[in-house]
Amino acid sequence: MGKNIKILICAHKDSRLPQHEYFYPIQVGAALTNVRFFSAQDHTGENISGRNPHFCELTAHYWAWKNLKYDIIGLNHYRRFFDFDRSFPSFSPDRSFIDTNSFLKEKYCFPNLEYLLNNYDIILPPKRHYPYNVATQYAISHIVNDLHLLKEIIQETTPGYAGAFNTLMYHSNAYSGYNMFITKRKHFDEYSQWLFSVLFQLEKRVKLSAYPDQARLFG
């Protein structure tokens, strides 16, 4: 089964990474530089590599959607990985930290992903909780008008998701972040089709900020 599983590790700089047959390191934003450090880059095939400053790790996601054909697809970052070894995950913080040397000394192990994904649609990071709803958390850190535009686009183009969007953004105080996931190809295709159709519409309407952090809004 291992040959039909690929977990992308996206990175924008050369990085020391754990080794596993499932891992697939990919350089993001490769169209914007001549430096090469991984054998896979997100500017080959059908891609949006040049939009990496605004789409972040989603350029790797898009590249995988258009160019890889595996039964199970996932995405990690060069400095964020799923931790499957916590003894009491329900009581663990949403994220923990470890220095690189200590992390790389340990053998990285996956559970039986095929078994898990026969029982669940998707594997996500633990939710991060806030003292207020998700929309308020976004407004505190970002440009709130971008969120209003996104809400309008979802209502106009995929109204069936408007209720779920409103529940998450305005009636929940927690979400799974980082665009990290592991799922079967069927769900990956469906999610990617919806995600990029919405984001490409948002891209047409939004005014990008001159501040790099705020200009990463699609990611």
Rank of each mutant, 00 (worst) to 15 (best):
L208W: 11
D121A: 02
I48W: 15
M169R: 04
S192T: 12
S87M: 09
N47T: 11
H187Q: 05
R205N: 07
K127C: 12
T136W: 11
S192G: 03
Y170P: 02
A174E: 11
I5T: 00
I73P: 01
F38R: 05
T136E: 13
A11Q: 08
Q19F: 02
F81H: 12
N4C: 01
A40F: 08
Y62L: 09
N133F: 08
E106H: 04
L202F: 11
A135P: 03
A162D: 05
F37K: 08
S39D: 14
Y108T: 00
Y191K: 02
I182D: 00
I153T: 10
N52D: 13
E152M: 09
F196C: 07
Y178S: 15
N67I: 13
L75W: 02
Q155V: 12
H171G: 09
T100E: 12
F23Y: 01
H54Y: 15
A11W: 03
H12Y: 12
P159F: 01
C10N: 03
L208Q: 06
N76F: 09
N47V: 06
D99E: 13
K3Q: 06
F196I: 10
D213Y: 14
L32T: 03
L124Y: 01
A174L: 02
Q193L: 14
L202M: 14
R36I: 07
H129V: 13
G50Q: 14
N101G: 10
P25D: 02
L116S: 00
Y130S: 05
Y161S: 06
F81P: 11
G163F: 07
C109T: 15
D14N: 10
P126N: 13
T44S: 12
L58E: 09
Y78H: 08
Y170E: 10
T59V: 15
T167C: 03
T136D: 09
L147F: 10
L32F: 06
D42E: 07
A162K: 09
Y170R: 01
H77A: 15
P126E: 14
H20T: 01
P125W: 08
H54S: 15
A60C: 08
L58P: 10
